[in-house]
Computed example of a mutant assay.
Amino acid sequence: MNKKRNKRILRIVFPLAGIISLFFVPWLIVRAWMAPLPDTVQEQLDNALNYDLDGTIVYVDQNGKPPEFYASGWNNRDKKIPADPHTLFKIASISKLYVAVTAVKVVNSGALSLDDSLADLLPEYSGRIENADEITLRLMLQHRSGIPNYMDDPDYPWSSPPKTNLETLELVLDAPADFDPDERYSYSNTNFLLIGEILDKTLGYSHHQYINEEILTPLKLKNTYNLLSEVNLDEVMSGYFIGYEPDIKANDFINPGGSMVATAEDVGIFLRALNDGSLLTESEQKTYSSVYVYEHTGLLPGYQSIAKYHRDMDTVVILFVNTSGGNAWSIGEIVYSKVVKILRKQ
Rank of each mutant, 00 (worst) to 15 (best):
V25R: 10
D54L: 03
I94Y: 12
F192Y: 09
R184C: 12
N232V: 11
V293C: 11
Q209G: 03
I57W: 01
G332K: 00
Y51W: 13
L173S: 07
P123H: 08
E235F: 12
I334L: 00
R11S: 14
L228G: 00
E167A: 10
K201R: 15
T323R: 13
R31K: 15
Q285A: 11
T168S: 08
R8Y: 15
P148E: 07
N322C: 03
L199M: 08
P157Q: 10
L22Q: 07
R77A: 13
G146K: 01
V106S: 11
S229F: 11
Y98H: 15
A262F: 08
S305D: 11
F270V: 02
L122Y: 00
Y59W: 07
M313D: 07
G326Q: 10
T190R: 00
L88H: 06
N223L: 08
V104C: 11
D252E: 14
P162K: 04
A250D: 15
T297P: 02
P181V: 02
Y240G: 09
I211K: 03
T168I: 05
P82Q: 06
S278N: 04
K7F: 15
W158D: 09
E230Q: 14
T40S: 13
F320D: 01
H208W: 12
P181Q: 00
P38W: 08
S188M: 06
L199A: 03
P162V: 02
I129W: 02
P256M: 08
A100L: 06
L343I: 14
D247Y: 14
P176Q: 11
D155M: 12
I269A: 04
I342A: 04
Y125N: 01
L171G: 02
L300R: 02
V30L: 10
V41I: 07
Y156Q: 10
V104G: 09
G277A: 01
V293T: 09
L122M: 06
V106I: 15
V58F: 00
E183H: 11
G55W: 01
E265I: 12
K308Y: 12
I195M: 06
V231E: 13
L139F: 07
G55S: 04
P82M: 00
E68C: 10
L171W: 03
L114N: 09
D84M: 06
R5A: 15
Q304W: 01
R272G: 05
E235D: 14
V293N: 11
V60M: 04
K220I: 11
S72G: 04
A262S: 15
S21R: 07
I306A: 09
N191A: 01
N63D: 12
I57Q: 04
S113Q: 15
L219H: 03
T87A: 14
M1G: 14
V339Y: 04
I248F: 04
